[in-house]
Design a protein around this nucleic acid. Structure first.
Lengths: 145, 145
DNA sequence: TAAAACCTGTGACCAACTCACAGGTCAAAG
DNA sequence: CTTTGACCTGTGAGTTGGTCACAGGTTTTA
């Protein structure tokens, strides 16, 4: 298979195939006649695997590690379970962060409803933002020294 | 104020101050003697403003636009409300996406509990991932051509 | 045979910083 | 007066996972 063939077979951009190849996730051989990259069924399996793993939140270095373990006939599954559990915790942390941001935004928006639009006068830029207090920041202790 | 002074006054990394300066958010003057950047109270106000806006989800180009409007004595507030509303929708979309990912991860993890760790045999890499079906992807229609 | 579609490698771009580096400046201490 | 350490300067690279552009070579199709 050539680049575009494996790319469409896996439903990805050909540039992604080239990128994964550069990153060492795929191992095509060269056609000595024209220097083209030639991929086989194993590469397609690896590519589909990589895409699924990405959807599950694995990073490219992690995926490369998994593939290398498999190449060495070691079961990557324990590592997969391990990394995955950590990744889940991370995702949950990200969700919590975004929800906090959302909370800040919603409360700011509702506070803004009763605030007039001011014209900048050299002291303020936009009251909406300047007079907004981050509820998650300590507002009691000055941060200047 | 010199770089480090304004940085500590605003609670940010001096490199961030330099970066914002390069990006045109801050407008220090030069000390002709030593070529140092000199910031004034207005710059500190702009810097604090920018940080608050970042916490609220504004991008640097948006913040620059807001600051430019204020420089031109136009009230940036209507734009702020506008961008902010869009941004809130985006954040909510991101949250939904992450929650979907989390759901995928949790369901995969629970399915994995009853699956044995296999050793790669040339046909599979890691069953855990390969035999996982993305519930959000159409599994009925093959993607290969 | 000529055009269209594909291949190659290299390098830039996205966001918002952060860090490293090499060299210049300044304040206080010895 | 000199040294030391903290600070300043600009530039460039690294982060993440691709995507896009470009210039030139190859293959396929009409």
């Amino acid at each position: 298979m050539k680049v575009k063939e494996i790319a469409t077979a896996a439903g990805v951009n050909p540039d992604t195939v080239r990128f994964y190849t550069r990153e060492g996730l795929l191992r095509p051989v060269r056609n000595p006649d024209n220097n083209y990259q030639l991929y086989d069924a194993e590469d397609l399996r690896r590519l589909r695997f990589a895409r699924k793993a990405r959807q599950l939140g694995f990073s490219l270095p992690e995926i490369r590690q998994i593939l290398e373990q498999a190449d060495d006939h070691h079961s990557p599954c324990p590592m997969v379970r391990d990394v995955f559990t950590q990744r889940l915790a991370e995702v949950e942390r990200e969700i919590a962060e975004l929800q906090l941001l959302r909370k800040r935004m919603v409360s700011a928006l509702s506070a803004w409803q009763e605030m007039p639009d001011g014209t900048p006068d050299g002291h303020t830029i936009c009251r909406l933002i300047e007079h907004w207090d981050d509820p998650s920041a300590g507002s009691c202790c000055g941060s200047s020294e």
